[in-house]
Amino acid sequence: MNLRLLCWVSTVKNELKGRRLLSDFDANLHELTYQNVWAGFKQLVPISLFVAVFGLAFGLAATQVGLDDSSIIGMSALVFAGASQFSALELWGTQVAIIPLAITIFAINARHLLMGATLYPWLRHLPPVKRYGVMLFVTDPNWAMSMQAFSRGEPAMGLLFGGGISLWIFWVLGTWLGLFFGSAINDPVSLGLDMVMGCFLLAMVFGGQKNLRVLIIWIVAAFSSLMAYWYLPANSHVVVGALAGGILGAIWMEKQQ
């Protein structure tokens, strides 16, 4: 799973290609049958096993922050977006400031907007209930794989939906396993386990695109966040940093191919 839309430019192109392709002749790519959903499910089981390990890490980190078991499972089941869940833990306390939390979650998960937009050329052939039903399970791995398949002209709606269900099941299952580890460990800090969250988020940052433009965006985000952390009201730093980086990204755009 990674945060950046790796093949961003190419997907935009593919989207345009797909639009033309679908409207002209090949309207079967979006088909959603039991067979192809099951095939998609099976295809993503290996990746889902890795996702389960991340889920385990989340369960473990969440118990340390003091969430009760049902809240942890509930969060994984209902939110189903790792980085944002880890970030929520970072903002968790005896009280939670709900507006900064909501904005943070939105900023982290805003990449889903792009996934939905890039999938639209194929999704638009589905009736609304199925279209939005499929989107419930869209996350980084199944999005990336089905976009690749769609752009090769293969039917991938089953991969998107079935694969998403597989990822969801293993994410929740992994979280549940994490609860047992979390309750069995007495001194998590001495084992470095308080860093699960930080290291996870950092790995997500470095897993994305890396170039000079992105590096400078990160530096601006880090600097603004720190300034806000020291001089602005509590909990504003995440939003300030995200906006600063985002605005710079909108001004200094990548060359469109």
């Binding site: 970072e90 603004s224 600063a244």
Partner: peptide
């Protein structure tokens, strides 16, 4: 799109700093 994609990385950096 460029705004969204820059923001989704920046938010993590802002959280980690």
């Amino acid at each position: 799109r460029q705004f969204i994609s820059a923001m989704s990385g920046s938010v993590l950096v802002a959280l980690l700093t």
